[in-house]
Simulated scan of single mutants.
Amino acid sequence: MKKLVFLFLILSFFLTSCEKEDTPELPVVQRTVFVYMPWSTNLLSDFQNNIDDMEIAIKKGILKNERVLVFLSTTSKDATLFELQYKDGECIRHTLKTYENPAFTTAAGITSILNDVKSYAPANGYSMIVGCHGFGWIPSSSSTRGIDQRMHWDSQGIYRTRWFGGKEFKTDITTFAKGISDAGLKMEYIMFDDCYMSCVEVAYDLKDVTHYLIGCPTEIMAHGMPYEDMCVYLLGTVDYASICEVFLDFYQNYERMPCGTIGVTDCSELDELATIMKEINSRYTFESSIMGSVQVMDGYLPAIFFDLGDYVTKLCPDRDLLDKLEVQLKRTVPFKSHTEYFFTMAKDVYRGEIIKINAYSGITISDISTNNDTAKKAETAWYKATH
């Protein structure tokens, strides 16, 4: 009997050893950058162009101690997770997993995808790039528009701009935040390559799951971010100032439509910004008769997104309190850039329109909007924290 027990122990040891050899632990890199491109109706070709531009950048040997994983939906039911790898002067795509009917509009589905990323590419830190349509903080259940009402992502004209997840596949920001939180992650940055995502309501919802938020306060052209030149600043030690400079240089010279806006929000500063805003709101009420004087950042009628800084200058007559807010706002949005005009397809989805930027803080707010789509603004975490 003792011999049998001894033989069993020896056999168990070898079996355990073999199992460990078959599933070696993956090396932990400094950062994994996750490019998330769920199904977005009419943007697939633009996403593919974005990935091509990332490959051009990676061919230059910019990857040091980072990995780049891409989740790309090619239909509403099919998606692939693959890695962009540098090898012998080329960038190759290494498929890691395929998905059927991924639940990318649910928190559980997002958590599952992020757990896959962690499993395939363990890292000391993570960042996330999101390519989709975007509509800021507006929840999918808020849209009161009829089936014939066209939106900025419905563009059929010669110029197109970029609902987070597509027209029929919308992901609420609160759902997105829970998906990241449930995966146990806090990103170094989340960059939205989408329209209207640099807004204070979005940033406040995401402040516990990312250190920085990069996004556009207006619409962004369908081309998206200029990854060929921007990638080097998104990897390694992130250079937020250069990200904004590259963006501005690209869109100032963009032949199709030279318009673009970008802002970088330091989410650690948002609580202090909310504290000052709460004091302002407790003392002053916005005079609706001067709404037309506030810088709008969209083409909707009535407008949905307003420049946050310009709005507060019209709300708060107390110079000392306003100065305090302006100082904090610069800390909250330390990097930003914009062209002279922004472009919108919201007014005319066949031709579009350009609107002059007279005031710019790199982030928007919807507090004074009377648009039906903002009916639930008082339910946002930002509004509750500031009123």
Rank of each mutant, 00 (worst) to 15 (best):
Y284F: 15
T370M: 04
E255S: 14
T175F: 11
F71G: 00
M197G: 09
F250A: 01
H211T: 14
L322A: 07
L315Q: 06
V200M: 07
L44N: 03
A378P: 15
A241D: 13
L206E: 05
A346W: 06
A79C: 03
E272M: 14
V296R: 06
V130H: 07
K118N: 08
D271Y: 02
E340G: 10
F135Q: 07
S268E: 07
Y350D: 13
S73C: 08
A79G: 15
P317Q: 00
F306Q: 01
S141M: 11
E25H: 02
S288D: 12
I51Y: 00
G352K: 04
K3D: 14
C316R: 00
F47K: 04
G260S: 05
L325D: 00
I357A: 05
G89K: 09
Y159H: 15
R67K: 13
P27N: 08
Y300C: 06
T175I: 13
G136N: 06
T106H: 08
Y240D: 05
F6Y: 10
I262D: 03
V28H: 04
I357K: 04
F71K: 03
C195M: 07
E379C: 04
A222F: 08
M225H: 01
Y341F: 15
A222T: 10
F13W: 09
I262T: 11
G61E: 06
Y251E: 02
F247T: 08
T74Y: 07
G134L: 00
H94T: 15
I58H: 10
A241G: 10
Y126H: 00
V200C: 08
Y233N: 11
S119F: 15
F247M: 07
G260M: 02
F104H: 02
S198D: 11
T339L: 12
G134K: 00
I56P: 01
W153T: 13
V200K: 00
L4T: 14
K60F: 07
T275N: 12
D116R: 01
V70E: 07
V130M: 08
